[in-house]
Amino acid sequence: MKIREIKNILDAELICGENFLDNEVFTACGSDMMSDVLAYVKEQAVLLSGLVNPQVVRTAEMMDMKCIVFVRGKHPDLDMIELAEERDIVLLGTRLEMFTSCGLLYKNGLKGGSGI
C-alpha cells in the first residue's frame, strides 16, 4: 500500500514528508509504548501511536520505519517535525482512535509483524 493510501483511508493530515507519499509499505504496528516497539517489532514500516514526543521519531529512525501516524488527533511540535524531516520519515495525523485506525488499515491490506 502506498503511504498516500494510508492518508486517504484514515482521512489524515499530512504533517511532513510529501515527497515520500508514493513509497510502498506492507506492514504496520500500533503502540504508545516505545519500549515494546523496540523489543517486539520486526520489519514494520508504519508506526501508529498516540504518544507524542521526540523519542517516537527516534524510535522509528532506529527501526528504519518510513511513516508515523499520530492517532486521536495528537499533533507533534515543530522540533519533532524537523527531526522527522531530517530523517525522511512521513508524519500523518488522524482524528481516529488507535483501534479504528489499525482496523481500517488492516482491512485494506496492511499486515502486522508476523505477516498475518
Partner: peptide
Amino acid sequence: QLGFGAGMGLPN
C-alpha cells in the same frame, strides 16, 4: 508516560 519503562531495554 514518555513511552519507556517496560523493562525490555537490557534484554533487547
